[in-house]
Structure formats: structure tokens, C-alpha cells
Design a protein around this nucleic acid. Structure first.
Lengths: 340, 340
DNA sequence: CAGGATTAAGCAATCGATTGCATTTCTGTT
DNA sequence: AACAGAAATGCAATCGATTGCTTAATCCTG
């Protein structure tokens, strides 16, 4: 009954007894077609409810006007902020954004990236999964000269655009802050050291200790995957040391929160007895009690920058790669402030 | 220098001196092609680094294997959870997810939806913008028989699949809870009444009052857009009444939090003097102090359900429309618990 | 070993939009 | 009226994968 079919330029052409090429040109406002016919064609297009088939256009033009973005987990404030930033810029520039989440699984990441390649995305923005340690799926993009940009969790062995925050400086700042507050034995929950961000955070921490002549105690640094549960496990381990820490720099706010709750439930006063700082400034860190000191990362801006960079590459306005290091901001809150 | 070109089935065909159709069939494991040639072809495909061009395939098959999802704001826990759920199911079923955010602007929503149509998404999942009041852009989908599903913020005048939570029951439960706790004058911050969710929440609230023979006082119900700022403004207005409320049912957790902070800063004790409840169970609601009582909405599950429904429609396994009403859960926390 | 049955593979059109080159139509001039 | 030159439009191939219909190759059996 109902015509399910979607009209094409040929339908418009038939209606007006002209050729499809004229219709195509008219709809693209090509001056080769007289204004009069152009208007006539557009009127018919409207009346038929014509909408260009982007697929066909993309195939012919070898351009999908699509940017892919791969994140470990969409449902995470930092990442959804980045996506939001990418979408914001991409939309304004006429690009569609395709998203996928790796769930921090290397295997899924490989699949996703290959599927994005098959979908012929014009560019790919990615923050790699925790487990990812082989990069052939990503090298494919650079090999084929398809623009690729990393953000946050970057791969150092692939030369391309990168947007990161200054993790080292952030970690240094936050550690120095703990020291300024009079904390003496500062522990650190670090993330997987194959990821630069966590390595840099640990290095910033170590550097701050060194600058302040605080001896490094290996037993105070624990490496795990920084889940909520990891935080509890680590807190248990740290506090059962014969000489437990009086402050803990957690690799992210998720562990900072779970560590804090664990300590609180054990009757340990924060920040009086133990100081806690996190990293990332999750929305809840500001409103929990005590509120959590942390390092703010400009997620939305990272997304915007990543999108801008990749679009410049796609449109060939830029040839050279750059690494943009965005500044972080130390946010001092209750969990580490003893009024000094 | 470097061949930037991506090999096609024709390249494989030329290599083996066979026809492209055979290659196509072989790669799709069509039994019409002998196992021997199939393997030969796959080997060559591998060695050339062949990846099918999904664009071409989609054009020919009139199917994009893509599902569009439009949300007001990606960067919002409930919505990113839904997206995550959609992505989860879609990925497993071989679909790509295209996202866009309307920023709660009707005009942007219209643009996005039209662009998704042009991109020939196989189905569209959407939660409409607050301001959206005309629905021609969405009717386009139902008119063309392209599967469409609403979640959360649905349009009642379009008949299609819908996934909502039981806002009425949730609001009833949470209001009844306040009454059980001994609160007598219960105010309500409501959202725009053109959106069913907010209308239903208000109705659930009214019904609970009625069932408990509590007279309805119009001055206790304020309608706004439920931003953080709206919460403060509303709290000010409510508390300056000659007979202010002793409890406030906020239309979402965002306003619940801002109302709570406003009251706290004015020295009003929560829950002793004023009880607060929210709606949506944002991640921070559990960890703020006092923690906020709220209604949990299963965002991830909504996304999964929406994806399942729309995929069934896309693949023609289901003809009839359904409205799935997911149950909500009342989570009683400190902000409204006086130990009764 | 002929001839039908079976198996394997190729031809060419198709999806819808785009574009280089060719053709038609119009305009103005002598 | 005829014609050059400009203006307007059309033809047909292309992008890469798919598929109905044929054709070619191989097999089997009397």
C-alpha cells in the first residue's frame, strides 16, 4: 500500500523529464544549472520528500563524513565528556560520530577498530583499553593514511596526533600538596604501568617525594586496575603494614572514594589521620563527605581538541602531528586539607 | 609512493584471474563456490589486506547496519548508561551505533534526526529534547516504516515502541515514603509538563497525597526545567512561603542536590526539619552527605531493551508495537529517613 | 563414448549520487 | 537568415559489492 520507497534523484528527474545529472547538480547548487531549473528541481524534491542517500554519495566520493570514537567505557563521566566534546565539534563541521566501547578488552577493541575501518570512517579518535598491548589494528590506520588521534591513553610507539593532560605535573602537584599539608608517609595506588597516564602519575609522585627528600618506600606503592574493589583491597593491604601511610594518592577518584569509605568505616578520620587525594574529578567527588581533593581533567575540551585536530587532518589542512598537553588543575577539598 | 588505496574484490579477482562475483561469493562463504577456490580467495584477500567496503555493501543491500541514538546530553549518567546498553546489544548483533546529542534544543534535534535519515540508519532510538513540541521529523521515520523507538521521554502521539520506567508508580512510592516518615507538607519540583515523564511524576505525587487524604496545595508545586539553578530558585521560593513545606520531592537528583545544599547552607537540618527525595539515582546521590533518597531507573537495561526491540523490528521478527514499562526502585537514604 | 545431470564460475545489471566530456539550445551579430 | 560562441543540459562511466540468469566445466551412467 504505502510506498515505503525513498525517492531518488532519478524520480525527480523522471517527474521533470530531465536527466539525473542535472538534478544532482541543481541540488548541489552548481552554477552550471540555471537558477530557474534549480528552483524547479528543489520544489519537486521537496514535494516528493526527497532526502539524499548519504551512503551512495559517500561511496562515490570515497568519504564517509564520519568520525569514529572508541572509549573504554561510555558510561564514565570523563569519557562521556570527551565524547560530548567530539560530538560538539564534529556536528558543527558536518560530521557524524560513531561510537563504540571496548569495555577495556583488547579483543573487543581490535574488532571495533576493524569494523570502523570497514565502515570507512574518515578518522578515528581512541583511548586504548587497559589490556591493549599489540597495536597492529591501529597501525593499519596510520599505514593507510587514515587520520588517527589518541587521547588520554595514548600509544607512544605510533606517531600521530595525541591529546593528553599533564599527568606527571598533576601527580606532582597533588603529591606536593599532601606534603605541604604535613603528611609524611604517602602511599600511591597506581594503575597498569603499560599505560602512560598511570606511569606518568607514578613518576610525578616519585619526583615530588624526591624533591622533598622523602625516602621512597616500595611497599607504599600498589599497582592494580583501579576499580572500586581494587581500592578496598589496596587500602586493607596498606593499612595493615607495620608502618602504614598517613596519606594515599589514589590513581583515580573511583578508588579514592572506595578507599575513603573503607577507612571511614574503620573509624579512621579523614583528613586528620589519613589524607586522601584522587585523580580525574568525578562529579561526585565534590559532593561526597568529606569531599575529595583531586586533579581536574578537561574532558570536554580534550574531545573538542581531538575533533579539531582530526578534522584538520581529514580535510588536509595540516600535515604535521602534534601532541597537545592540556593543563590540569589541582582542586583542594576536605579529604586532604588540614588547614595548613 | 605508498599505495594509499584500499584493495577491492576486483583487485583480488584480477590477482587470481577470476571474476569479482566469485570473489564476493567466496568471501561470504557461499556454497556455490567450491571450498578450494574459497580458500584460495581468502588467502589472497588476507595477503592484500582486504577489508570489505561496508559503504558499498550497504548501498547495494539497502541496509546500513547502523542504529542511531539521540539523547539530550551524552554527558549525563542516565543517558550515557542507556547508550552503553544500546551499544552492548547492538555490537553483539553486528550493528554500529551512531550517536548525537540534541543539547535539549528542538532545532538541533530536527537537524540530527534528518541527518540520521539521510545516513539511512536502520533504526532510531531517541529521547526527545525538553523543548521539542512538533514531531514531523520523527513522523518521517514511522511514515517511511523505519523502526523508531522512544525511551524515557516519549511522544504519545506517535505509535511505536516505547521503553519507559513507571514514573507514576515511582513518584507515588517516593511520596508515600515521605508520608510514612511523618512529613505533612510535601512540596514538589516538577519538570516541563509537555514531557510525559514529568507529568506522570506529578500525577503519582498527587495520587499519593489523595490516597492519604492530604489536601493539595498548589503553591507547593513548582514547574521549571530542573537544572541545578532552578533547584536553588525553587527552594528559595518554597521556603519563603508563610507556611513552607517540611519535605520536597524533587523531579530529579540534580535539583535534589542543589536544594539540599541550599537548605544546608541556611542551617536547615536534613532530614529532621526538611526531608528531600530526588529521582534518577545519579551516582553521587549515594555518596553525598546526607545521601539522597531517590528512585533508581535502570538506564543500562533500558538501552538494552530499546536495542533489542528495534533490532527485532529491523530484522522483521516482530510487527506489533509495545510499550515496555520497567519497574523503578525506591532507594531510601539519609535525606528522608527519620527512623520510622 | 554420447548425452543428460550436476557442479562451478562468469556476465551484466543494480544500489543512488557524482562528474568529465559531449551535445543541444539559445543569444546576439552581421 | 546564418553562424559563432555562450549557456544549459544530457550521456555514460564510476564508486565497490551483490545477485539472477547464463554459460562453461565436470561427472556419471547406460
Amino acid at each position: 500500500m504505502n510506498r515505503n520507497v525513498q525517492p531518488t534523484i532519478h524520480d525527480i528527474a523522471r517527474e521533470l523529464k530531465i536527466s539525473a545529472s542535472t538534478v544532482s547538480r541543481a541540488l548541489n547548487d552548481n552554477p552550471r544549472i540555471s537558477l530557474k531549473t534549480r528552483e524547479k528541481i528543489k520544489a519537486v524534491a521537496d514535494s516528493l520528500g526527497y532526502r539524499p542517500n548519504t551512503l551512495a554519495s559517500n561511496l562515490r566520493n570515497k568519504k564517509s563524513n564520519t568520525i569514529g570514537i572508541v572509549v573504554p567505557l561510555i558510561n564514565r563521566h570523563f569519557f562521556s565528556s570527551v565524547i560530548s566534546g567530539v560530538e560538539d565539534v564534529a556536528y558543527k563541521a558536518g560530521y557524524t560520530v560513531v561510537i563504540a566501547q571496548s569495555n577495556d578488552l583488547a579483543a573487543k577493541e581490535v574488532n571495533i577498530v576493524q569494523s570502523m575501518y570497514s565502515n570507512r570512517v574518515d578518522g578515528l579518535i581512541i583511548s586504548i583499553a587497559m589490556q591493549t598491548e599489540a597495536f597492529d589494528h591501529l597501525k593499519l590506520f596510520s599505514k593507510k593514511h587514515i587520520p588517527l588521534a589518541f587521547f588520554d591513553r595514548v600509544v607512544s610507539e605510533i606517531e600521530t596526533d595525541k591529546i593528553v593532560v599533564d599527568d606527571f605535573a598533576g601527580a606532582y602537584k597533588v603529591t606536593q600538596h599532601l606534603i605541604d599539608q604535613g603528611y609524611q608517609r604517602i602511599g600511591h595506588l597506581a594503575g597498569p604501568q603499560n599505560l602512560m597516564i598511570y606511569l606518568h602519575r607514578k613518576e610525578g609522585y616519585l619526583e615530588a617525594l624526591k624533591k622533598n627528600n622523602i625516602p621512597f618506600d616500595e611497599s607504599l606503592v600498589l599497582i592494580n586496575t583501579l576499580t572500586s574493589e581494587d581500592g578496598v583491597t589496596a587500602a586493607k593491604q596498606l593499612m595493615s603494614l607495620s608502618n602504614p601511610p598517613d596519606a594515599i594518592f589514589c590513581g583515580n577518584d573511583i578508588t579514592a572514594l572506595s578507599v575513603m569509605i573503607y577507612l571511614r568505616d574503620r573509624g579512621i578520620r579523614i583528613p586528620q589521620e589519613v589524607g586522601i587525594v584522587g585523580f580525574s574529578n568525578e562529579p561526585y567527588s565534590k559532593v561526597v563527605s568529606p569531599s575529595i581533593s583531586t586533579i581536574a581533567q578537561p574532558g570536554f575540551e580534550m574531545g573538542q581538541k581531538a575533533a579539531e585536530l582530526i578534522i584538520r587532518k581529514i580535510e588536509n589542512k595540516e600535515k604535521t602531528y602534534q601532541t597537545i598537553i592540556l593543563p590540569t588543575e589541582l582542586i583542594i577539598r576536605e579529604s586532604s586539607y588540614r588547614g595548613k
